[in-house]
């Protein structure tokens, strides 16, 4: 079964352009100039259920825009996307029950509350009964080792503890697809390793499909079997990690990715 299916997805932003200074401001009112930025151009791919996919690329390549379109935050203006068989733009709320999201740089937790209270809130959001919520909190808190700080206000937690809580919060309702946008950003190596291990475990035990964006090659190497590289809104590579390594036998994954980035840039210039 296909968890995510994307066909010819495109997104263009129209941005108002303004010249500098007062003169520019007046000009912008009289003759508004818009500039089109094509953030995602004709992107197609399929993610099978239970797959762990790395979606990577340099800043501004269109990763976040794609995730936003897959979760219903942004509407595409070309092509279509199906997540769990649903169109995110049309069935955003229904889809929300089936997916989880963790944005490494944006908190979704209430920082003055304890993780436990937060989880109860998210339980309510996803219509879990009190009892279901309790059972699920117990289960996840054991698995993620939250026992020591589950009753400490989130603002007093370390970044690593906090991101673990973020992930648990997004897993309470047993999503079939989990979107992770830079989940390990800013964590120290040991914590990174724990977080990765937990994500892997989730994938194994609950068969969760994982859609991951990251700058950290370690994340990709440890977690993903498949890799999609986007650049300038287009897919430049879609391959299995194994196959890549086979292709470049003496290189580390990091080197391979850098190679690909460089090669593409060269062709773009040439």
């Amino acid at each position: 079964m296909q968890a995510i299916k994307v066909e010819h997805l495109s997104k263009t932003f129209r941005v108002k352009r303004k010249e500098k200074g007062m003169k520019g401001s007046i000009k912008a009112i009289l003759h508004p100039q818009t500039e089109e930025i094509r953030a995602v151009k004709d992107v197609s791919f399929v993610v099978e259920e239970g797959e762990v996919l790395a979606f990577i690329g340099p800043n501004g390549a269109g990763k976040s825009t794609t995730i936003k379109m897959l979760t219903g935050i942004l509407y595409p203006d070309g092509g279509c996307a199906k997540v769990l068989g649903m169109d995110p733009t049309k069935k955003r709320r229904q889809l929300a029950y089936g997916i989880g999201t963790v944005f490494g740089q944006k908190e979704q937790l209430w920082t003055h509350l304890t993780p436990y209270d937060n989880f109860r809130f998210f339980g309510a959001i996803y219509d879990l009964s009190e009892k279901e919520t309790e059972i699920r909190i117990d289960e996840l808190s054991n698995r993620f080792g939250l026992g020591d700080f589950i009753n400490t206000p989130v603002r007093n937690l370390s970044l690593g503890q906090r991101i673990r809580c973020e992930i648990v919060a997004s897993l309470l309702h047993r999503p079939k697809v989990l979107f992770l946008d830079e989940p390990t950003i800013g964590l120290d190596p040991v914590v990174k390793e724990t977080v990765r291990e937990l994500i892997r475990q989730m994938n194994r035990e609950e068969h969760t499909t994982i859609f991951l964006t990251s700058h950290d090659v370690g994340d990709i190497e440890k977690l993903c079997r498949r890799i999609i590289i986007v650049n300038d809104g287009q897919i430049v590579l879609d391959d299995s990690v194994e196959h890549l390594k086979h292709h470049y036998p003496d290189h580390s994954l990091e080197e391979i990715i850098t190679e690909i980035y460089k090669a593409k840039e060269l062709t773009a210039v040439g």
Binding site: K68, T71, G72, I73, R92, R93, Q94, A96, Y97, I99, T101, F103, K106, Q108, I125, Y126, D127
Partner: peptide, 9 residues
Amino acid sequence: LDAYLVQPK
């Protein structure tokens, strides 16, 4: 508003 858009409420 993103955070509210990914919630099923």
